[in-house]
Design a protein around this nucleic acid. Structure first.
Length: 358
DNA sequence: CAATCGTGGCT
DNA sequence: TAGCCAAGATT
């Protein structure tokens, strides 16, 4: 049995499986509007279908066309994205919507290179949009594809290496069914998500098991291979929620750190845990202003991919406004309209600690 | 180009 | 529990 025959077997069985056994349904499946396909693909980057589903439905409802999205207030778009993570996706989403609306007459590009050139769109997303919306012959290479191909062909090259990405991408494009690229791309991703799963793959019922190298060699659990390990750092965020005559100090987080473009209260970051009683930085910010500590929150903790954020919130009431560089006062009611990271929205929604905030 | 960007589900 | 992983892209 040569490589070519193995490839044909894989493609044929994937397509058959998709036709006969794939019951997976998603609102964007079969969608032909490139705008909606684009929206779904951006939302689904590094995001589970179940997590992105509601966001997709809310976005389509709020912004039925790219022109609606381009014309929306940016804070409103970020608020709709709130909680989904990887917020530069939202920033690029807005930029691309404006670009398409203003420079392309609202018409989504239909050439692969033009799609790839859009902000927030890389090789995967360009192939997905291209194949689903315009029948362009480009293979998607996502986590599912890495897994299915590495196992079926028994390839132990790390998928997170430069070489690995090239080799798997090349292989995926060799395999691609050029007559039905969209169907094939959908099939292999659904197959990876439903059958060839990371932890508990359904090998016993798999239509590829007779020729799956990993299955035959009992190396399914060892594939795919990744070479990089992540290092995690811990940071302490102490937030001062300063209420001055029913207004609160907030700022928008800037570049070069987590949660860019989301809002936060007055941040005092430390490298160690601290006691908020007699906390010097707090006294320094408040100066000689009279203040009243209304509440000190419980500890909050959030796990991110590369860091662990821990901290507390201290709510303080003052009468005279402060001059704080970078921060501005907003009415308490207006906080509802601002996008916050989970670390903060978890605090805000906790009725026990922020009852008087709104 | 290796590091970084969130959040949540699962084992 | 701590770690892995999820329809990746950017710098």
């Amino acid at each position: 049995m040569n490589d070519f025959a193995h490839q044909k077997y894989l493609v044929k069985n994937l397509i058959n499986w998709n036709t006969n056994d794939n019951k997976r349904q998603m609102p964007w499946k079969g969608e032909k509007d490139p705008y909606k396909i684009w929206l779904s693909e951006i939302i689904l980057q590094q995001t589970r279908v179940e997590q992105g589903l509601d966001y997709y439905n809310r976005f389509v409802k709020a912004f039925p066309t790219v022109i609606h999205l381009a014309g929306a207030a940016e804070t409103k778009v970020f608020k709709l994205w709130e909680g989904l993570g990887y917020y530069t996706r939202c920033k690029n989403l807005i930029a691309t919507a404006k670009y398409i609306t203003n420079n392309l007459s609202g018409i989504f590009p239909d050439k692969y290179e033009d799609i790839l050139a859009l902000k927030g769109i890389g090789p995967y997303t360009a192939a997905a949009i291209g194949s689903f919306a315009f029948n362009l012959p480009h293979a998607v290479v996502d986590g599912n594809v890495f897994r299915v191909l590495s196992r079926y062909f028994g390839i132990a090259i790390p998928t997170d290496s430069t070489d690995g990405k090239k080799i798997f991408s090349s292989l995926a494009n060799d395999l691609l069914d050029k007559k039905q690229p969209g169907t094939y791309n959908q099939a292999i991703m659904d197959f990876g998500a439903l059958i060839c799963k990371p932890k508990l793959p359904l090998c016993s019922t798999c239509v590829l098991k007779d020729r799956c190298k990993a299955f035959l060699q009992a190396s399914v659990q060892q594939l795919p291979v990744k070479e990089k390990s992540i290092t995690k750092k811990t940071r302490w965020f102490y937030y001062l929620v300063i209420d001055c005559n029913e207004e609160v100090y907030v700022r928008k987080r800037g570049k070069g750190d987590i949660w860019e473009n989301l809002y936060e209260f007055i941040l005092i970051e430390t490298s160690e845990a601290v006691q908020l009683e007699n906390f010097q930085p707090l006294k320094k910010i408040l100066g000689k202003n009279k203040f009243e500590v209304e509440h000190i929150s419980a500890f909050y903790k959030q796990l991110l991919t590369h860091q662990t954020i821990q901290g507390q919130f201290i709510r303080v009431k003052i009468k005279l406004p402060l001059t704080l560089k970078g921060y501005s006062l907003v009415k308490k009611r207006a906080l509802e309209k601002l996008p916050f990271p989970k670390f903060i929205s978890n605090y805000l929604k906790d009725k026990n600690v922020s009852l008087n905030l709104f």
